[in-house]
Design a protein around this nucleic acid. Sequence first.
DNA 1: GCAACAATTAAATATAGATTTAATTGTACC
DNA 2: GGTACAATTAAATCTATATTTAATTGTTGC
Lengths: 223, 223
Amino acid sequence: MARKPADQSVNREEIIAAAADVLRYNGYDATTMKDIAAKVNLTAASLYHHFKSKDFLLLAVLEVGLDHAIAQIEPIVAAADKPAAQKLAEMITLHIVSVTDNTAVGAAMVFEIRALMNAKLPPRNGGQFGQEDYDEFIKRRDSFFARRAYFENLFKRTVQEGIVNGEFRPVDASIVTKTMLGAQNWVGVWFRPNGRLSGADIAHMMVDTFLHSLRVPQGLNMA
Amino acid sequence: MARKPADQSVNREEIIAAAADVLRYNGYDATTMKDIAAKVNLTAASLYHHFKSKDFLLLAVLEVGLDHAIAQIEPIVAAADKPAAQKLAEMITLHIVSVTDNTAVGAAMVFEIRALMNAKLPPRNGGQFGQEDYDEFIKRRDSFFARRAYFENLFKRTVQEGIVNGEFRPVDASIVTKTMLGAQNWVGVWFRPNGRLSGADIAHMMVDTFLHSLRVPQGLNMA
DNA sequence: GCAACAATTAAATATAGATTTAATTGTACC
DNA sequence: GGTACAATTAAATCTATATTTAATTGTTGC
């Protein structure tokens, strides 16, 4: 009946964080349960006390990463007073910095989506792994992708908002959104922590690029 | 002494094309040699007559994809007379269409790079696989990444060209290039052949986005 | 019609890694 | 000072696949 986790224990969060780091550098298939366990001074077997399978652990990492990204962006979209351009600038910045600073976000956005789609459960015989586990996995996986679409939609709505209120040129909001997110997610692929630019620097430039592209030219004769 | 390949035979090109298709949908790790072989009516064992290993086959696919992409872009950059803006428009268009139409290009640009980096040879014991094979693999892999950098550089040069000749605003050419390529490569992630837009449609919109962002505003008072 | 090699294959190997099992150890609460 | 469960583990399983082997079949040039 609801015991406090003992000191000896490594909790779920720590394992997820460790797994995110390892995944980020090696990718799902190249990452072994042993690698992840080693990061938190456990054996591979121990991980199964916390997660039903490697796939469930992956799922947990991606959920955490996506939740983090959404939590950053959501409040900005909600702000009723700010101009769309400013909202978008903040959203782009926060997203890029999330990707560069949080390995779980990078995994959720770019690297491990494929692995999640490929996951085929149940892994083996009819062992402990029951139909309920399978159903739960499918459900959470679908939910992950739905939330990912929601995340994209936050950007799209802001673009549309800007178009409607005349701040932005009329563009295909859907494609422009995918263009922006593609560029932003891609940062996770090439970014190196000790490179010339920080995540914030990069964000600054991308904001410039996309706002320039969207903004209705100021001070032009409207003849 | 140079015999014509027999009719019975399936050639290297066909296998590479088949492998690219399978890889594109399942990813390297989820793709088995059997899957690839099945696509060309062979058994897994047969593939080893044509390629030294699964990794070498992957490498071949990526090389073909990258070569294709470079072959499309290179001549445009070379054209001495065209304005940078027009060159860039053509380059973006050809690249996006390559990604949407050619599975090998998609693999080389986005999906299987990770797998190539992870490839650790030699796979097993000291069998047929010798040191020379290992060396060759490393060499070709490094060469692939160098050519990938070269590909990116073709875009970067064109951006710089436009800046120098006053067509484009002064921007960080390196980051703008990565922004564009990120957006373009990302098309490979979300594009669906029977979607609302064709590759060419998407290309058209992205060209608009990026040229708008780069171009020096026309008809402004230069006070 | 045979030598030589190309192309293919069925069947045998090998092995890495995920997962399971059965047992041990820690801790909280009574 | 024992009960109950949480956390952990060493060792045993279990399989899916890449790869190797050894043999077969096709083709060409002579």
